[in-house]
């Protein structure tokens, strides 16, 4: 079966591997009969879609779970409300569906991702100029390090759409659709290609998309509202404290009744004004792993 879930708020600071561990434990806690790998260390058969960088948030993370028993026994419709309380605050299951055997993996299927990106260091007007110039350009060349060597890449073919959404403190918010083949373009690379003066603020993956143009769709649709990312009650990124343990974990999104509604193929983001937010300018994390002395 396939699950779609969010990663919002404090939990965004965990890594892709951390999320995998949360799922292993969450599925065991929920008592779902997950199939296991063979061998000395049997692992649950889980496969995640595209990795999300540590620190980025998402309304569209995916997980395929291979079950040990028939799907009917699981009760697909109840799964989101059953699984979310077993997962950390900010990770909420918003849709579940059966996967046809032999279907391509998530990694292979997805062609592009839609992002909301805070571009710090440019107001709306300047950002519009940069965006227009980028869209009009034939190529967007960036330099990056690959296996210790400097390589150049043209990002332009991977930028499927790009628009300014509105102002945020310290900059403005962009919406971009970026291709994931032949390699995933990162939001920070897009900002670097627009202008070296831009820096990345909060980043939200709004959707992962399969196919191109009008025929494309999400692996699993869910009614998600990118506006709820930061503003409004119940938005985990605004939540400082956890829900009291005796109350069921609230869904971060618009409510369970909307979860399985389908979105139109071309989702037009609502225009939203500046939300009360903090100014922050992330820098690249310092390199170097940690070793224990002994």
């Amino acid at each position: 079966m396939r699950l779609r879930f969010t990663k919002l708020g404090k939990v965004r600071f965990t890594s892709h591997r951390d999320v995998a561990r949360m799922w292993e434990r969450g599925l065991r806690r929920a008592g779902l009969p997950v199939a296991l790998t063979e061998g000395f260390r049997p692992r649950p058969k889980l496969s995640f879609g595209l990795a999300l960088s540590t620190g980025h948030e998402s309304l569209a993370e995916y997980l395929d779970v291979e079950l040990a028993g028939p799907l009917d026994a699981v009760g697909l419709a109840d799964l989101p409300t059953r699984l979310s309380p077993e997962l950390p605050v900010g990770i909420d299951v918003v849709a579940a569906a059966e996967v046809v055997p032999g279907q391509a993996s998530l990694q292979e299927e997805v062609d592009s991702c839609r992002w909301r990106i805070e571009a710090l260091g440019a107001d709306v007007e300047r950002a519009r100029t940069l965006v227009d110039a980028a869209l009009a350009a034939d190529e967007l060349v960036i330099c990056r390090q690959r296996k210790g060597r400097e390589v150049t890449d043209d990002l332009r073919p991977a930028v499927l759409s790009l628009a300014v959404v509105g102002p945020v403190p310290g900059g403005c918010e962009l919406e971009a659709e970026l291709a994931v083949h032949p390699r995933s373009v990162r939001p920070a690379e897009l900002l670097g290609a627009l202008s070296p003066t831009l820096s990345e603020g909060r980043v939200l993956r709004v959707a992962q998309l399969i196919g191109h143009d009008r025929g494309r769709k999400e692996p699993l649709a869910a009614a998600v509202d990118p506006g709820a990312w930061r503003a409004g009650p119940g938005s985990p990124s605004c939540t400082i404290e956890r829900d009291p343990p005796d109350e069921p974990a609230s869904t971060s999104l618009a409510g369970a009744e909307r979860l399985l509604e389908r979105l139109p193929p071309h989702y037009e983001p609502a225009d939203h004004g500046p939300a009360a937010r903090r100014d922050h300018r992330p820098e690249p994390v310092t390199a170097g792993g940690l070793r224990r002395g002994r």
Partner: peptide, 23 residues
């Protein structure tokens, strides 16, 4: 008095920020 609003932007700039989020 939580310091979270002031800490949050710093966590995007450090190694292993999950060390500091609790939850």
């Amino acid at each position: 008095s939580t310091l979270w609003p002031r800490l949050e932007p710093l966590l995007a700039r450090v190694q292993k920020p999950a060390r500091y989020i609790g939850c």
